[in-house]
Simulated scan of single mutants.
Amino acid sequence: MAAVRIQQKVQKVQQEQHVQRAPRKKQKRSVRWTVGEKLVFVSFLAFALYSSVTIISNQFTIYHVNKEVQQLQANIQEQEKQNRDLYVQVQELSTYERILAKAKELGLTLNENNVKVVQD
């Protein structure tokens, strides 16, 4: 009887070894992040978000400033053109012949003894 019990124990051990030798299914390992890793990751995300918003904000501001500069340059060019046109008009209206004609039209006469030459 003792031999039967020993033989049964040996068979159980062999069966257990046979069961243990069966290929194990790979279990998915769940990734465990430590508090420090989470803090670093969240800090990185916050920095990336802040940097993105800052860059976009600065680009938006630069765009508007450039637009204003271009508008001011266009206004300056328009004003310079008007100034040149007015200068030409002043030169045309201040000719000696025109002033003399306008004076005669208003009934003034030219007294050559009373004329003084003024130079700029």
Rank of each mutant, 00 (worst) to 15 (best):
M1G: 10
A2V: 10
A3T: 15
V4P: 06
Q8T: 10
V10I: 15
V10L: 10
K12H: 06
V13H: 13
Q15I: 08
Q15G: 00
Q20S: 13
Q20L: 12
P23D: 00
R24Y: 06
K26T: 01
K26N: 00
K26G: 01
Q27W: 12
K28W: 13
R29A: 13
R29P: 07
V31I: 13
R32G: 01
W33Q: 15
T34R: 00
G36D: 13
G36Q: 11
E37Q: 05
K38V: 02
K38I: 03
L39Y: 10
L39F: 09
V40N: 12
V40Q: 13
F41C: 04
F41Q: 15
V42F: 10
S43K: 07
S43W: 05
L45N: 09
A48N: 10
L49W: 05
L49A: 03
S51P: 02
S52E: 04
V53F: 08
V53P: 01
I55D: 00
I56Y: 01
N58H: 03
N58D: 01
Q59D: 00
Q59G: 07
T61F: 09
T61P: 00
Y63A: 15
Y63D: 08
H64T: 08
H64E: 08
V65A: 03
V65E: 03
K67S: 04
E68W: 02
E68F: 00
V69E: 01
Q71P: 06
L72H: 08
I76M: 06
I76F: 01
E78D: 14
N83Y: 11
V88S: 11
Q89G: 12
Q89K: 07
V90N: 02
Q91P: 04
Q91A: 14
Q91E: 04
E92V: 15
L93M: 04
T95Y: 05
T95Q: 00
T95S: 01
E97C: 02
R98Y: 05
I99H: 13
L100G: 04
A101H: 06
A101N: 07
K102D: 12
K102H: 06
A103M: 12
K104I: 05
E105W: 03
E105Y: 07
T109N: 13
T109L: 03
L110K: 15
L110A: 08
D120Y: 15
